[in-house]
C-alpha cells in the first residue's frame, strides 16, 4: 500500500465535497452533467485512487512510510 488505510479513508472523505461541487464548477464552463454522470465520474475517480493506493510501492520506502503513518498512539 502506498498510503495508510486511515489516510486513504480521509482522502476518500475529502473527495466527497470535491465531487459534489465538481458539477457546479463544470457548469460554469458550460459542461452540464446529470446526477448519474457525476456519480459515474466519482466512481471512476474513487476507483483510480483505490488502485493507486493498493499498488505495491518500489523499494523499501513503503515500510518506512507505513511506520510513520501508523506509529504508536
Amino acid at each position: 500500500m502506498r498510503i495508510s488505510k486511515a489516510g486513504l479513508l480521509v482522502v476518500l472523505a475529502f473527495l466527497a465535497p470535491v465531487l459534489v461541487e465538481l458539477r457546479t464548477v463544470l457548469a460554469w464552463v458550460n459542461i452540464e452533467l446529470s446526477v448519474l454522470e457525476t456519480a459515474i465520474i466519482g466512481g471512476i475517480i474513487i476507483a483510480v485512487i483505490l488502485v493507486w493506493a493498493f499498488l505495491p510501492e518500489n523499494g523499501d520506502e513503503e515500510g518506512a512510510e507505513r511506520d510513520v503513518s501508523n506509529s504508536e498512539l
Binding site: 488505510k5 486511515a6 479513508l9 480521509v10 503513518s69 501508523n70 498512539l73
Partner: peptide, 8 residues
C-alpha cells in the same frame, strides 16, 4: 500531511 496520525 502523510505523516500525521490519521489513524487516531
Amino acid at each position: 500531511l502523510k505523516s500525521l496520525p490519521w489513524r487516531d
